[in-house]
Design a binder for these strands. Structure first.
Length: 216
DNA sequence: ACCCAGGTGGCCC
DNA sequence: GGGCCACATGGG
């Protein structure tokens, strides 16, 4: 069933080429900034940082909070997110000598523990980093994923780890597949499968329980 | 004027 | 473990 959904989404949307970032470090900054925020709002913040050459462990570690806040206002929760970025860079310097590669080389279960120990990085952000910055096969669960699984009738489960297990159990442990599948689910969520029903022309129309009742 | 977005941590039970 | 809340901007 999951395979079938993946195929339909891929056929409809094509390859997504995620994550939209130049470097693994930028993936991490983007992952923090995009928490509960649209990517378009994040892009502006990233551009501001890029323009000033700030996207790196040294610069972001040294910049004053007030200065960083101003640059990332567009991403929302900008005071919180400034602290989160600082928490990450402090962690990186204190435990990995500022070397991101050393951190990302850890086995994924250890890497996940390390990331989750940082205040401001939760399960989804941690897994996004593991998948899109470290290129390891861990499935990312977000609110779109929960809604899609619920609507199509696969499961009403909302627990993060349980849902992740489902993907890990039913799919081959393939980084590229996990990469593409999560991106496709997010892309689907941009136009379809919203809180308010909009099932017309949805690529999952034929396999979705919700669409069936909605279309009646 | 609402509603929502590629979440998280704190506090409560 | 789950439910509720604050956190904040920008686009529909």
């Amino acid at each position: 069933m999951l395979q079938q959904i993946y195929q339909k989404l891929y056929d409809h949307f094509g390859p997504q080429n995620w994550w939209p970032a130049e470097t693994p470090f930028e993936v991490i900054i983007g992952a923090i900034l995009t928490q509960n925020t649209t990517w378009s709002n994040v892009e502006k913040a990233i551009e501001n940082l890029e323009k000033q050459g700030l996207i790196g462990p040294e610069k972001l570690h040294k910049i004053e909070n007030k200065d960083l806040e101003k640059l990332i206002i567009s991403s929302g929760y900008y005071r919180q997110k400034t602290k989160k970025i600082k928490n990450f860079t402090s962690f990186l310097w204190e435990k990995y000598d500022g070397k991101l590669k050393k951190l990302l080389e850890l086995p994924s279960s250890r890497l996940r523990e390390e990331l989750l120990s940082i205040k401001g990085i939760g399960k989804e952000t941690a897994d996004s980093i593991i998948l899109y910055a470290a290129d390891k096969p861990v499935f990312v669960i977000d609110n779109y994923t929960k809604r899609v699984l619920s609507r199509v009738g696969i499961t009403q489960e909302k627990n993060y780890d349980k849902l992740q297990e489902l993907f890990h159990d039913k799919l081959p442990q393939d980084t590229q597949l996990f990469n593409e599948f999560h991106a496709l689910l997010v892309n689907l969520g941009k136009d379809y499968c919203k809180r308010k029903p909009k099932c017309d022309n949805c690529p999952l129309n034929q396999v979705c329980e919700y669409a069936k009742s909605y279309n009646q």
